[in-house]
């Protein structure tokens, strides 16, 4: 079956919507009726946290995949994946604040400042928010060259999220290490670009 490029993009987008949104509906339905294990709070925090990381890794694998298989149209679904990563991260943070800490605001601010893994997670979230907000076409055009510069921050975000995950576990470090490895591989595809970025930052400082 032959599909036009725009219908290919359309179907992939529909699939992403279904795959990212339906699990959330199911998750919260089960959590709401107390059928999500003994501690639904822990379950929803873990699910949305790992979901956000998965989506972030997916969005970063789009351009290497598109390049490798010469499927340029794939780039058109990257934004949707990135925005879903942000949505999952937002829900992840909301779960922590609303269901775990139950709006104990002072405890929330204390934890963000005092606990390095939460500080790092929060920093990643703030950066991700900036990317999500500037993903609107209108803003993207307006920002011109600086848009790309800002969105290069996604490489930093994925590493921050990796450290956040690694630091949050009690002792089972194999899963977070595996995620960090994946993130490193995805950054490896951008070796030249990252090298250039680092050099330009370094040179700018020297001047």
């Amino acid at each position: 079956m032959f599909l036009t490029l725009s219908s290919k993009v359309f179907y992939i987008k529909v699939a992403i919507h279904l795959a990212a949104f339906l699990p959330l509906l199911n998750l919260y339905y089960l959590a709401f009726i107390d059928q999500l294990g003994a501690d639904p709070v822990e379950s929803v925090i873990n699910f949305t946290g790992i979901g956000a990381f998965n989506l972030l890794l997916l969005s970063l694998s789009v351009s290497p995949l598109a390049k490798k298989f010469k499927q340029g149209y794939l780039l058109q679904v990257r934004r949707l994946l990135g925005v879903y990563a942000f949505v999952y991260a937002l829900i992840h943070l909301f779960n922590f604040l609303a269901f775990d800490l139950q709006f104990a605001w002072s405890l929330f601010f204390n934890e963000v400042v005092k606990r390095p893994y939460i500080t790092i997670g929060m920093l990643a979230f703030v950066l991700l928010t900036a990317l999500a907000v500037t993903s609107i076409n209108h803003l993207k055009r307006k920002m011109g060259k600086s848009w790309q510069q800002l969105h290069n921050v996604s490489y930093l975000i994925v590493m921050l999220v990796g450290v956040h995950f690694y630091w949050s576990v009690k002792s089972e470090i194999i899963t977070p290490l595996f995620y960090l490895l994946l993130a490193t591989i995805l950054l490896g595809f951008r070796y030249k670009k990252l090298k250039k970025l680092c050099l330009s930052v370094f040179i700018r400082k020297k001047r």
Binding site: L18, A19, A20, L22, P23, N26, L27, Q35, N54, L57
Partner: peptide, 22 residues
């Protein structure tokens, strides 16, 4: 019986979901 099904539900959704795309 209902209780034991709960993870299956999530799992099915999960595998169809974000995870499977990876």
């Amino acid at each position: 019986a209902v209780y034991l099904q709960r993870r299956k539900l999530i799992k099915t959704m999960g595998f169809l979901g974000t995870g499977a795309l990876l």
